[in-house]
Write a protein that binds this DNA or RNA. Structure first.
Lengths: 299, 299
DNA sequence: GTTTACCATGCGTAAAATTCATGGAGCAAT
DNA sequence: ATTGCTCCATGAATTTTACGCATGGTAAAC
């Protein structure tokens, strides 16, 4: 394959569009002389003239006419593909469950955006997990999970640890309840399915019986919000309540923590592992969210 | 329109095809280091990697995969168009009537081919004249004509002048015939239609009567060939018999020349006027065939 | 451990692109 | 004709870029 000088072709294209070397030079931020030389190079390559130079204006020779649409199409094809792939490097869609989104990601999100102002980061909070990223609705996902799918890269962030918390207003002037006194208050369940409270009591050596008066919530986030409004005592994932404990909205009622068998992971498809946006977000998330020092990346 | 560095794109294409910078370098007659730098340039332009470098071999990132077909298609489009237009500059189809072809063009043709060995010149000897070159079967034409069509460029070569010639063998030991004795020999007509002999005799002040014993031929060439074989006396166009007179195959029997109202022209379409092959052939033909010094080209 | 086969990179040089300044050709208006 | 204007072409100098060379590093294979 013997291609003509490609940069000269680019100049040819612009010159042919403008019917002027001078205007082409302005468009390309070149002098008129440089344009002239590029065209000469191209004409020498083909051994024939591409433009008819007249004092009144520039016209294409039949060969120039034949060349023009091919060059235009070829370059617009390259341009389109380039645009497509460079957009992928500037956009990042992060998926998180509502709880993780509002309690983990959002509080720290502006920090990330400030560090990478050119990156268009969006937060997707679909519930349910598309395990193979087949829907392509997001690029990287915060996810609590136990199994690993092939083709995906998993970075463990931290194990989930649940501790009992409540609003200090719940107790008014009374002293904080001991473990045994928890049952005097409404127990808020952060899940409809998992029996977090039963497991936690078992861990503490208690058996409060099966009839625990309680409200159950859809998400961990909602249970925490309810607790912070004084509705009762809930089990909250430690990493989600740092702010609330710090500003006194919630108080931790015990050091006994229920450690579940699953952990939170940051997950993304292997084929996105080379994207700078994915790499940047991963590195940031690991340093922010992990409970262990950053590991050597397996990549 | 902001295009990526085009030469780097070319290198990317070859490297992607070979899955190797080293092999790409060999193909492109570059060192491996130069290829590496081109790819770096391209990756810096996009801000993302296009190749995954492994010790075992090179693979494309998803972005590289997306870019590859676009670049391949774009360059092959340019290549096809380039091939089409540069072929036009290397080929030239010359049209001439059989007489002009065999008596004018062919004897001098090798001279032209030797001067432009890269040019593929072919001689087309269709009879009949496609006045607007619409059939596109030939690029430039030798043609005797009186009228001019718009869109075509005409270069006058020479007027047609007919003189009587015959083979010296026709007269054996007898002296060459005078004008009045021509009728003792067969008169060969170079045309079925035109009454060249009647016009020539009229020019000479003779009236031989309407019943001239004669053979008529389809072309000027055939009549000359017949005369050179001793079949009789013919009227021959001067420029066609230079060789025969020089080597004694034919002898000229009179200085009286019949000058017709038409002339021979070299004709080609205006849109081919910029082709180097057309220009080269035109200049050569004018210097070889013209009976006047070269004119300033009107183009 | 050693070799091998890659790609990356610092540095010096060669080549190419670009600018600047100037010249020349065709056209239009005076 | 003459002048002025608008383009493109071009010689020379300069800046920029590409390239080769030699070397270094890394991961797999022997």
């Amino acid at each position: 394959m013997k291609l003509p000088p490609l940069n000269a072709l680019r100049v040819f294209l612009v010159a042919a569009e403008h019917h002027s070397f001078t205007k082409a030079g302005e468009t390309l931020h070149l002098t008129q002389g440089a344009v002239s030389r590029h065209i000469q190079t191209l004409e020498a390559h083909y051994g024939l003239p591409l433009f008819v130079r007249q004092a009144r204006g520039l016209t294409l020779t039949p060969e120039g006419v034949a060349l023009f649409p091919a060059v235009r199409d070829a370059f617009s094809r390259i341009e389109a593909a380039s645009e497509a792939i460079s957009r992928r490097s500037r956009e990042l869609r992060v998926k998180a469950s509502p709880s993780i989104a509002s309690r983990w990601v959002l509080p720290r999100f502006t920090q990330f955006r400030n560090r990478y102002p050119d990156l268009m980061v969006s937060l997707v909070t679909v519930t349910g997990f598309d395990p193979n990223f087949k829907s392509r609705e997001y690029d990287i996902s915060f996810q609590a999970c136990e199994t690993q799918e092939p083709g995906l890269i998993y970075h463990r962030l931290r194990g989930a640890r649940f501790v009992p918390v409540a609003s200090p207003a719940l107790f008014k002037d009374k002293p904080r309840p001991t473990m045994e006194q928890f049952l005097d208050y409404p127990l808020l369940h952060p899940s409809h399915e998992d029996q977090f409270w039963s497991q936690w009591f078992a861990l503490s050596g208690m058996n409060p019986g099966s009839s625990i008066e309680a409200y159950a919530f859809d998400t961990l986030d909602l249970a925490i919000t309810a607790a912070s409004r004084g509705m009762g005592i809930t089990l909250a994932e430690e990493s989600m309540i740092a702010d609330d404990l710090a500003n006194g909205t919630l108080v931790q009622l015990s050091d006994v923590a229920l450690v579940t068998s699953w952990a939170y992971y940051l997950i993304y498809p292997q084929e996105l592992a080379t994207l700078p946006s994915v790499i940047a977000f991963r590195d940031w998330a690991l340093s922010e969210f992990s409970d262990t020092p950053p590991l050597q990346d397996t990549l």
